[in-house]
């Protein structure tokens, strides 16, 4: 078997006449940080949505861990180990930071109606087992002091961290981050980059969409460039940086 965890074949999606995504072939190799860049409207987020099954593709197939997941529900995909975040941060505003984490970590069985109504002892045990993991994750993200605050009271950057922390409660095999640095101050951005690198060192595959080119070039093992729905370049950061097509489409205007 190949050593890619995720692979995509001939994935297309159109909105009316506009072809938003048309990706012939795309793989994520095990244990890499892959960044997806491209100008606005290149189809990065739509591509994300297609992979995570938040949108239905018009055609094409998606394989996750060599299993065809082209028709799998988004939440089933998350259970299989593919967890995503969102470009506009989505925390549960009117729940506390701690509850956000608890919800992410609690098992499906515990959330069953009858279990919640009747089976209290095993439930307490399971919830108790979460505490340590939640505390550790919150400490790693510097959110521990805020654990009893409502999520909406957090700053934008902290919300990003909470969303990341929530995803980590799922023990993902691949983490898809949609602009993890957007709207985050430079210091916190460095912090987040460090966390991402550490997660990758622990064996979590990362695929992220990000506009901060310097950050992307710094931490990525591989950079994929999209323009007008297609992948126009794919390789190590240095290769992509000097790729003529990329400079034309994207980097040329900002870097040169």
């Amino acid at each position: 078997m190949s050593n890619n965890i995720l692979s995509v074949n001939s994935l297309t999606k159109s909105f009316g006449g506009l072809e938003a995504v048309n990706v012939e072939n795309f793989q994520i190799n095990s244990n890499e940080i892959t960044s997806l860049i491209g100008p606005n409207g290149a189809g990065k987020t739509t591509f994300f949505d297609l992979i995570t099954r938040f949108q239905d593709a018009d055609s094409g197939s998606i394989f996750f861990k060599n299993k065809n997941v082209s028709k799998t529900n988004s939440y089933m995909l998350a259970r299989l180990g593919m967890v995503r975040t969102f470009q506009l941060t989505r925390v549960f505003d009117r729940m506390t930071v701690y509850e956000n984490m608890q919800f992410a970590g609690s098992s499906i069985k515990n959330e069953g109606f009858l279990n919640s109504l009747f089976n209290k002892t095993s439930l307490r045990k399971d919830e108790g087992n979460l505490i340590e993991k939640i505390d550790d994750t919150l400490k790693m993200l510097n959110l521990y002091e805020m654990r009893n605050a409502y999520a909406r009271e957090l700053s934008g950057g902290q919300k990003k961290l909470l969303e990341l922390g929530r995803s980590l409660m799922k023990d993902p095999e691949i983490l898809l981050l949609d602009e993890p640095l957007a709207g985050v101050n430079p210091k916190l951005a460095d912090n987040i980059l460090e966390i991402i690198t550490n997660l990758n060192a622990k064996g979590i595959n990362i695929l992220m969409v990000e506009h901060n080119i310097n950050a992307v070039m710094k931490i990525s093992d591989r950079v994929v460039v999209m323009a007008e729905g297609k992948i126009i370049s794919d390789g190590k950061p240095d290769f992509v940086r000097s790729d003529k097509k990329v400079i034309e489409a994207y980097l040329g205007s900002s870097d040169e």
Partner: peptide, 12 residues
């Protein structure tokens, strides 16, 4: 609070 986030966390 947010259905999409619920789905992204593997819940139906």
């Amino acid at each position: 609070e947010d259905e999409d986030a619920v789905r992204a966390l593997g819940k139906n």
